[in-house]
Every structure is written in structure tokens, then in C-alpha cells.
Nucleic acid binder design. Structure first.
Length: 893
RNA sequence: GCGGGCGUGGCGGAACUGGCAGACGCAGCGGACUUAAAAUCCGCGUCCUUCGGGAAUUGUGGGUUCGACUCCCACCGCCCGCACCA
């Protein structure tokens, strides 16, 4: 999932391989044996965590600890992990490790979003079976993820392409079918006539298929739909309860669901056509009904089809609209065009008739596929009316305008005002006019007030091989027959021909031919597979009991759900998250979950992209960062050839621009902790970050600095667990204050996803520890306290280094991964004295150091006495003295 | 067009509930250590300075306040999402 729409990472360039690059990095030339060696230490600690089972949790928690479910969007197994994955999983791992230390039973699983088109493309291009390609990629990527030291419960791992997973998905489908949540209906699709397949909207580029280049047709096909619209009201309303979701994601979902309040109005046709004697339109502006000038049908409207059947000109017009494609972009750029059918409809109230047009800008998918045109108060209708010379009557008067002189030019008036030229609505304001006319329409049986949704049912049919088969059978006698549950999973056949265009399951020689489960007559399997978004719509529930015999184990699901913290890319703000919200409700209503709220993700965090500078060689070709050497003078050259390199813009890492950095190469060179620390330190995690070599090197310096700090201090430290001395010097008290303030600050930062702030506080703390030089017993004790705190505070971010330091500081005292989080001591964090800023007329003139809780008179006296302040005050009268205890003094003259 | 968000040094960014703007890191410059380099450590935002300090500065203009990065109004710029949605 993560990475399906996001830019995909490149295959590693040969230059990224370890043997090629590490020799250039200076750290390998260093002979200092005291250096921390992540390549040796990290795998060792990963084994230790694994053997101790630190991160495994049972399906049914024992109830001694509160639960916390951390989930990152699971990856699509595209080949190798990329920096986007590293960022995503690092963020989740910090949360998981922190919450574990805070005493929660933490569920933190990982799996694979393993169905999808790239596997079929790879099969075609390289002759590898999609399953083989996918499982190989999973093996590679699992190894790469394990090297990151993530605190995952790997015993829960699964891949969605495994029949052990998708069989349960088929069972869910059958339950949804029985509950009336699945529907088979005709729908328009993007049809590629060369590849003979349905294309997703994003696979249509400029009206052509992305692979074949053929002009895409709009074709009506029978498709399977999940009835997400049944939950539209709840999916919208419940957004208000998701207070730990980003506001913009909620806004995007609101727009997507798109509630609009309006009316349906019936217009009688003067001459019935083929059984149609009326047209129903939807409008949000029933108040403008008296400003009507025409009625327009979508080219896909049934009445348009009926007209086209009799009228070649109409048929030609409808056909020309079809070739435009269904992408929003294609519709947007299209000019408004129409065809006058010659038919007329009668107005519900004024007795007049108006022409019926077929117009290319009217969408069949929204409302009723027909509109009434009011050019005075709708820009689209106005454009259309001007083009075809249709009448324009203003019926809403802008505030302050004069009814006798007001006229519409090239801009429709779409705001509120007072109704004119509108019979019984005259004089009413727009909201009142809307209410009044709906009453009138309902009273006369010509219309009704309705709520219209933009959200459409979810078409899940895909004519693809590498997806979950839809478990139904088509029988000529019995119709659509569900596959009996005891025959699940319906497995994909292994032997397929992907070279032929069209649906591989459909032209498989034997697979689809089965006996009808009901009447035993020869029948055919459904050959469509499900949209891969289905796979990712319930995986979070399956993780709670990944080996259960049924899709979920109710006890496990109810114990662990909802996910407390979900983390992933903003590119899934609408579809994946909306589909999952729908699935949680549908699963609840079919008994698979107890989740009363229907909300699968209580908290959501969307991380930013990872970007990098781009480089071009002398010949204009893109170069990988690993091929480029930055010179001290700021110029860049090719490492091998020495030719100059042009440094371009910082852009999202992408294969096509080759501005990718291979995580494996970074771990080889610096270790996982360095990569994690850099990713967390650079900027706030919701923003896009720039990956820079200098930044990684800086992060790596810090790991070595910490190691030196601990090693250097070790000989002079009292043993772990030594009781505190009776008293502390001022210097020792200051260090302890720094320790306890840092505990408080880092805790606060981790709670609020301000990981970059946590990193900054830990830098400061390390500086503070290094600044303290004395050897007295009390100071040594405070230094141990500080170093132990430092290590434990950075442990969620650099877990391996933390273990390695902890083993030095407290040998035989267990692993940091199993230690509780530190609590700060408010008393120790409190200062004895405080620095107060002294202002004169709001300008800073000096600072004074006063005891905490000093009385106001003393503080003011000290402030006035400060030399620089005194000079500023000399010869002036103080009119007012402001004193904010512990903060500031301000003298007003 | 509608909706959401953001503007702070050369760069990424920090700043609690309105109280010392620029923490921390990166880059750059200077210094220490070294035969030298790397590594490491120290110092440095701008302008003026009589070296005490002073002035300007958080996109722009106004306002509230003893005091504004923070609150209010107007404007400018950038980013993201949606859109013939009737």
C-alpha cells in the first residue's frame, strides 16, 4: 500500500553496493578501536530481542496491561524498501517502543499488500510468475526491514496474496452479499480496446490507455459493487468524532462523500418518447426554478439513448461524447457542447415549455443525470446558454441591486439575494425561497426535497489475474450462485497466460468451468478479481488473530481494535482510509467485529515524503546520488569520470530522476540507528524531509559522540544502583536538573509526535553532560544518573545503541527494550534561581538572577539596580512596574 | 472557483497559556590540537560601536497590549486537496 501511489524507489544502482562505496567513507580509515561498530552490534541486539520475545503479544491480552495497537500502512512488495518505508516504519517504531515502555501491551504487526498489477507486468516483461516475483520480493524486503531493528511481532506476518488470507476475504464478500452490501450492476468504465481490459482512472492518460496508447472508450459493463453509499451518512457524521486525525484528511473525506441538500423535480415531456413521459432532475437551487431556460440530459441518460435510437444526429452527438474518456481532467478541458433534441418539457408552475438538450457537461453519475438550466445563477448554464443563444432571466437580485436595471453579463450571480421574476417566491431571500418551493413541489406532487451524495458505490471488479477471485458462480439456470463457504478459498490457477490481452482468468482453458453448486449443471466461475484496495481494507483486523479459522476472531479483534495509532502517507487520505472505515462498519454489521463506533483507526498520523537533490551529468542524463561527489567548493562532479555535474531541484525520490538513496547501503555504511536518528531529527514528521549526506553524517557523529561519552565516563562512575549521596554540589544539582528537565521534555515531545524536538533536547542534554568535568562522588553519581537517562530516553529512536550503552552502564541489568519509561522528579527539575528578563518600555535591557519565589519588591529592586537597566532608567519617572514572576519585569516610563 | 494549510538566519527548524526570538542540527568562517590530514574541541546571525553597548529583524501594512512569531483586520506569496457535483 505505502508506495503504490507514492513514487516508487529505484532498484539499487551498482554504485550503492557496499563494496563500492564504503571505502570512500572516512570512518573506515579510522583505526580507533573504541569506535562503536553498528555492523557488529545491531544484528546482535536484533537476535537478543528476538530470542527474548520482547515484541510478541498474544491474540488475547491477559488484561494486566492496557492495550495499544500501533500500525503502519503495510508495504507493497515492489522489490526493495525505500526511504519512504524507512521513515514510515521508524515513526511507528518510536511510538511502539515508547508505548511499550509506558506500560502498554503493544500490538505492532507487519505484513504485505501483495496483490497488484506490478507483479503481472513483471511477469510479462521478465517471464517470472507473479507469485514467484511477489514472494521473492517479500523475502528480500523482510530481510531489509529486519535490519532496521523494528520492534515488530513478526509472528503475525501475512501476505494478502496468500490463499490463507484471501480465502477469508472471499468469506467476507459472501457475508456482505448476503447482507445486501454487494450488488452487481451496469456501470460505465474506461475500456481499453487493445488490451481488452478495464482501466482505472489514473491509468488513462489524455484519453488513452497508459500501456496500449489506444483511445479509451466509455463502455457499460456488469460490475461488482460494494454498497459503501449505504453508510454515507454515518461515514460523514463520524468524521467529527475522529479528533486524532489530521484536519485536512477529514476535510478531504468530507468533500469526497459530498453531501448536498436540494430537490428532485419532475418535468413532464410534451411528447413522450419510448415510454418516457417525464424527466427528473436534481438541483441544489430549486429557488431558481423560475429562471429556467432549458433542460439538459447527460449523453448517458436513458432518455438520451431513446432519442438517439430515433435520431441519427443525436446518436452522433452521444457517440462523440463517449470517446472523450471518463477522467475528470478530460471532462474539465472539454468545451460545453450540446444537441437540441427538439423535445420540450413543461415547467411545474409557470405553464411554459422549455427545450430539452443533450449536453456533454451533465454527468450521469451525479444526481439524476439531468439538470434544469438556470443561466442567470449558474456559470456552466450561462456558458451553455450564451453559446446556443438560450434565454437568460435573472431571478435572484444581489443585495443593493435594482430589479429594473439588474442584468446578467458574462458572470452568473451565484450568491444569495432576493427573489424576483418568480411568482410566489418574489421578495423572499434565497434560503426561505428554497424552503417555500420545496413545500410547493411536494404539495403538488411534482418534486421532493432530497439529500444527494457525491460518494458512489465502490466498483471492485478488475479483469486481472493477480487479485482475489470473486467467489461466485454464474449458472444459466440458477443465476448468480455464491461459492459455498466450505469450498473456499477459490484459488487462483498457477498456470496462466499473461501474454494474451484481456482477462487471464477468462481465457484459462479449465479454471472457470465448474458445476453449479445448486443444480450441478455446467456453470462458469466469475473471472473478475477484486480491487486490491479490498485487501487492505481489513488487514488491520486480521492482524489481531492472523491464524484464525474465520476472517476474524471476535475476542481478539474486540480486545485490540481500534488501531490506536495508524501511520502512513497522505496519498491514502481518501480511498484506503474511507474503504477501511466502510469495511469496519460492514464487518461489524455482519458480525465479524464488535467495534461499535465502526471506526478502525482512532489516531492517524500522515508523514511527509522523503526528497533529495537531483543530479544530471554532462550528457544530461540523471545520476544517482551515489555517483556524485560534492566538492568542498560547492561544485559537484561525477565520482568515476570527474565530469561536472549539474545540481537540480530537491524533489520526491523517484526512480525516473534517480535521486534515490538505498536504505540498505545507508545501513551498511552507518547502521540502522543513524538512519533512524537522522530521519527523526531533520524536521517535523508530517512535513516533507530532505535526505542529505551531510545530515546523515551529522547523525552518525552523534551516535559516536554518545558512545565516547559513555565509554569515557565509565571508569569514574559509581556502580549501577549505588544509593544517592546525602548531598549534592551546585554543579551536581544543575546536572540533575538538566536530567529531570530532559526526561520531562522528551516525554512531552514523544507524546506529541515532535520527534525532531526530542532529538534537539537530547543533543542539548548530551552537551550538558559533556560540559560537566568534576570527579567528586556526588557529581559522578549525578553523571551516572544523567547517562542512564540519556540512553533510555533515546532508546525508542536508536534502540541498538541504547542496548549497547546500557550493557556497559548496567551489565546484567536486562535490556532497555524491557525497561519502563523514566519519570521525572518535579522537585529536582525545579531551579533554585531563575533568570528574569528586565525590559524598559518593552525593550530588553538586561537580565537578573533571583531566587525562585523571591518577593516582588526584591525582584523589582534587583531589576532597577541592574547596571544597564539603571542607565536606561536614569532621570526618568517609572509610571508602571510589570512583574510576571519567574518571567519578566517591564518598566513603563 | 471552493476547501485546508504554511510564510522565522545561508538551510532544516525551536519558542509553554501573549513574557529574553533564532534553541538544536546542517553548511560556512575563524581558532585549538596535529609534521600534516582526518577525527575531536572552542567561538561566530545582521548593521553600527567610543567595545560599555546600541539599532533593526519572525512575508507586507495596520490594530489590541506594559509587552506580539504567538491575538484581531487587510493584503501578498507559496503548498496541498477537490471541482462542469447542478
Amino acid at each position: 500500500m505505502a508506495g503504490r501511489r507514492a513514487p516508487r524507489q529505484a532498484r539499487p544502482h551498482p554504485l550503492n553496493l557496499r563494496a563500492e562505496t564504503t571505502a570512500r567513507y572516512p570512518m573506515d580509515q579510522i583505526t580507533d578501536t573504541a569506535r562503536y561498530d553498528p555492523a557488529e552490534a545491531e544484528p546482535r541486539w536484533q537476535r537478543a530481542w528476538d530470542e527474548a520475545g520482547c515484541f510478541a503479544v498474544p491474540d488475547l491480552p491477559d488484561g494486566t496491561k492496557p492495550k495499544y495497537y500501533v500500525l503502519e500502512m503495510f508495504p507493497y512488495p515492489s522489490g526493495r524498501i525505500h526511504m519512504g518505508h524507512v521513515r514510515n516504519y521508524t515513526l511507528g517504531d518510536v511510538v511502539a517502543r515508547y508505548k511499550r515502555a509506558r506500560g502498554f501491551a503493544v500490538m505492532h504487526p507487519m505484513g504485505w499488500d501483495a496483490f497488484g498489477l506490478p507483479a503481472e507486468n513483471a511477469a510479462r516483461e521478465r517471464g517470472i510468475h507473479p507469485g514467484r516475483w511477489t514472494w521473492d520480493n517479500i523475502a528480500t524486503m523482510r530481510g531489509e526491514l529486519k535490519r532496521m531493528g523494528l520492534s515488530l511481532d513478526w509472528s503475525r506476518e501475512f501476505a494478502t496474496c496468500d490463499p490463507a488470507y484471501y480465502g477469508h476475504q472471499q468469506a467476507l464478500f459472501l457475508d456482505f452479499l448476503e447482507a445486501g452490501l454487494v450488488e452487481r450492476k451496469e456501470a460505465f468504465v474506461n475500456w481499453d480496446p487493445v488490451d481488452q481490459t478495464v482501466l482505472a482512472n489514473e491509468q488513462v492518460i489524455d484519453g488513452r490507455g497508459w500501456r496500449s496508447g489506444a483511445v479509451v472508450e466509455r463502455r457499460k459493463l456488469s460490475q461488482w459493487f460494494l454498497r459503501i453509499t449505504r453508510y454515507a451518512e454515518d461515514l460523514l457524521a463520524a468524521l467529527d468524532t475522529l479528533d486524532r486525525w489530521p484536519e485536512r484528511v477529514r476535510t478531504m473525506q468530507r468533500n469526497w462523500i459530498g453531501r448536498s441538500d436540494g430537490a428532485r423535480i419532475r418535468f413532464r415531456l410534451e411528447t413522450p418518447v419510448d415510454g418516457h413521459d417525464a424527466v427528473e432532475v436534481f438541483t441544489t437551487r430549486p429557488d431558481t426554478l423560475f429562471g429556467m431556460s432549458f433542460l439538459a440530459l447527460s449523453p448517458d441518460h436513458p432518455l438520451a439513448a431513446a432519442i438517439a435510437a430515433r435520431d441519427p444526429a443525436a446518436a452522433a452527438f452521444v457517440a462523440s461524447c463517449r470517446t472523450l474518456g471518463t477522467t475528470e481532467a478530460a471532462l474539465e478541458t472539454a468545451e460545453k457542447r450540446g444537441h437540441d433534441t427538439g423535445l420540450r418539457v413543461r415547467h411545474p408552475f409557470n405553464g411554459r415549455t422549455y427545450p430539452v438538450w443533450i449536453a456533454n457537461f451533465v454527468l450521469m453519475e451525479y444526481g439524476t443525470g439531468a439538470i434544469f438550466g438556470c443561466p442567470g445563477h449558474d456559470q456552466r448554464d450561462l456558458d451553455f446558454a450564451r453559446r446556443y443563444g438560450l434565454s437568460v432571466t435573472p431571478v435572484v437580485l444581489p443585495p443593493g441591486a435594482e430589479a429594473t436595471t439588474f442584468a446578467i453579463g458574462d458572470t452568473a450571480f451565484v450568491e444569495d439575494g432576493t427573489l424576483i421574476n418568480s411568482d410566489f417566491l418574489d421578495g423572499l431571500e434565497v434560503p426561505a425561497a428554497k424552503r417555500r418551493i420545496v413545500e410547493e413541489l411536494e404539495r403538488t406532487g411534482q418534486g421532493t426535497g432530497v439529500v444527494q451524495w457525491r460518494l458512489r458505490d465502490w466498483g471492485i471488479s478488475r479483469q486481472r489475474y493477480w487479485g482475489c477471485p470473486i467467489p461466485v458462480i454464474h449458472c444459466d439456470a440458477c443465476g448468480i450462485v455464491p461459492v459455498p463457504k466450505d469450498q473456499l478459498p477459490v484459488r487462483l490457477p498457477e498456470d496462466v497466460d499473461l501474454a494474451r490481452p484481456g482477462n487471464p482468468l477468462d481465457h484459462h482453458p479449465t479454471w472457470k468451468h465448474v458445476a453449479c453448486p445448486r443444480c450441478r449443471a455446467p456453470a462458469r466461475r466469475e473471472t473478475d478479481t477484486m480491487d486490491t484496495f479490498v485487501d487492505s481494507s481489513w488487514y488491520f483486523a486480521r492482524f489481531t488473530a492472523p491464524r484464525a479459522e474465520t476472517p476474524t476472531s471476535r475476542a481478539a479483534a474486540d480486545a485490540w481494535l481500534p488501531v490506536d495509532q495508524y501511520i502512513g502517507g497522505i496519498e491514502h487520505a481518501i480511498l484506503h482510509l474511507l474503504y477501511s472505515r466502510f469495511f469496519a462498519r460492514a464487518m461489524r454489521d455482519t458480525g465479524h467485529l464488535g467495534l461499535a463506533s465502526g471506526e478502525p483507526f482512532a489516531g492517524l498520523f500522515t508523514q511527509g515524503m522523503v526528497k533529495h537533490e537531483t543530479y544530471r551529468g554532462a550528457d544530461g542524463r540523471w545520476l544517482y546520488p551515489a555517483e556524485v561527489e560534492k566538492r568542498a567548493d560547492g561544485t559537484a562532479v561525477h565520482r568515476e569520470t570527474g565530469e561536472p555535474v549539474t545540481v537540480g531541484a530537491v524533489e520526491a525520490m523517484s526512480k525516473s530522476k534517480r535521486n534515490t538513496v538505498d536504505p540498505g547501503a545507508i545501513i551498511d555504511r552507518y547502521g540502522a540507528d543513524t538512519a533512524r536518528w537522522f530521519i527523526l531529527s531533520d524536521n517535523p514528521p508530517e512535513r516533507d524531509m530532505e535526505w542529505t549526506e551531510a545530515g546523515v553524517a551529522g547523525a552518525h557523529r552523534f551516535t559516536q559522540r554518545v558512545w565516547r561519552l559513555v565509554q569515557g565516563a565509565l571508569p569514574s562512575l559509581p556502580p549501577h544502583g549505588t544509593p544517592a549521596p546525602a548531598g549534592f554540589s551546585a554543579e551536581a544539582r544543575a546536572l540533575r536538573r538538566a536530567t529531570h528537565r530532559t526526561i520531562a521534555a522528551v516525554t512531552q515531545a514523544l507524546e506529541t509526535f515532535a520527534f525532531n524536538v526530542a532529538v534537539a533536547r537530547l543533543h542539548e542534554f548530551a552537551n550538558a553532560i559533556a560540559d560537566v568535568r568534576g570527579e567528586d562522588d556526588d557529581l559522578a553519581w549525578a553523571r551516572r544518573e544523567a547517562l542512564e537517562a540519556l540512553v533510555r530516553l533515546f532508546s525508542p529512536m536508536m534502540p541498538h545503541l541504547a542496548e549497547e550503552c546500557w550493557a556497559l552502564l548496567a551489565p546484567g541489568q536486562g535490556m532497555v527494550a524491557t525497561l519502563p519509561w523514566l519519570e521525572h522528579d518535579t522537585t529536582l527539575a525545579a531551579a533554585d534561581t531563575v533568570t528574569i528578563a528586565v525590559q524598559v518600555m518593552g525593550r530588553l535591557r538586561g537580565t537578573i538572577e533571583v531566587p525562585v519565589g523571591a518577593d516582588e519588591a526584591a525582584v523589582l529592586a534587583a531589576a532597577e539596580a541592574e547596571t544597564n537597566v539603571a542607565r536606561a532608567l536614569a532621570g526618568r519617572t517609572i509610571r508602571k512596574r510589570i512583574h510576571v514572576p519567574g518571567k519578566i519585569v517591564n518598566f513603563v516610563l
